[in-house]
Design a binder for these strands. Structure first.
Lengths: 134, 134
DNA sequence: CGCACTGTTTTATGGTTGTCAAACAATGCG
DNA sequence: CGCATTGTTTGACAACCATAAAACAGTGCG
């Protein structure tokens, strides 16, 4: 059993964590890790539907940001969420992100327009498509 | 008095918010907004030390992500943190980020190595400089 | 040893981003 | 109206990033 190098808890930086979690693919990894506890890289790849090198890239980003740790056992590598470390460094942050992520994907599953909202006269003064909405 | 277009509360997306806050300059804006309540774009620019067009760019990113709203009054534009909207959509998220941001900048001010930590034999198995640490 | 398996690194590529400078637009003051 | 003030937009540029393909590396099984 071998532990791969990670930043120390006190070296974890907020903006790095946020940037790591600002990617949908990586957020998906983290959300799943939060529920299943541990994954191998292969399981992560399967779950994501991206090329294995891409998955490896994202797992590296998460590891270097201090979000995740990796330990090798045999020829498998197990990924874990560094929940305690993150909670010690940034209390409540991961919980709120995970909660938000859950609500978000739940909303996406149960249909995106629960309210038909007669297109065009939203009272909240919104320009929905400003700059093409990416 | 004129309100500029913003995404509706229910259209605010988690990854967009995280990406918006994953930039040090933008995080600084938000942290300051949280304390002072309101800023003009000019005050933001002064506080940031970047070119005014850069500041404008970041304020736009924050606005499009739904983190901030802008209202024009006269020839000034006032920026506000959409705290209630963000809290309604992602409970606890902004608070934890602001708290983390405060602790972070406080630590940066009061010196970065409170523990000398005889360079080289950290027991936590850390590779400090992996890939140049950006 | 040789081979299958599991990930990582390298290389390429297209897209996005942060930054500044300069031009532009909107607003109110005199 | 003319002009200063306040921001935005455009253009240019370098850096970074997500992605995939292919080559590479470590590990255990037979």
């Amino acid at each position: 059993m071998r532990l791969l190098p990670h930043p120390a808890t006190e070296d974890i930086e907020l903006t790095e964590v946020l940037r790591a979690l600002a990617d949908p693919v990586r957020l998906k990894i983290v959300a799943r890790l939060a529920t299943v506890g541990t994954m191998t890289c292969g399981e992560a790849t399967d779950h994501l539907g991206v090329h294995k090198s891409t998955a490896s890239h994202h797992l590296r980003a998460l590891r270097e940001a201090g979000v995740v740790c990796t330990k090798q056992e045999g020829r498998l590598k197990y990924i874990n969420l560094r929940r305690d470390d993150l909670d010690a460094r940034f209390p409540g942050l991961i919980d709120s992100i995970l909660t938000a992520s859950r609500d978000d994907s739940a909303a996406a599953v149960s249909g995106d327009q629960p309210v038909p909202a007669a297109s065009g006269d939203d009272p909240t003064l919104i320009a929905a498509g400003e700059r093409g909405r990416r």
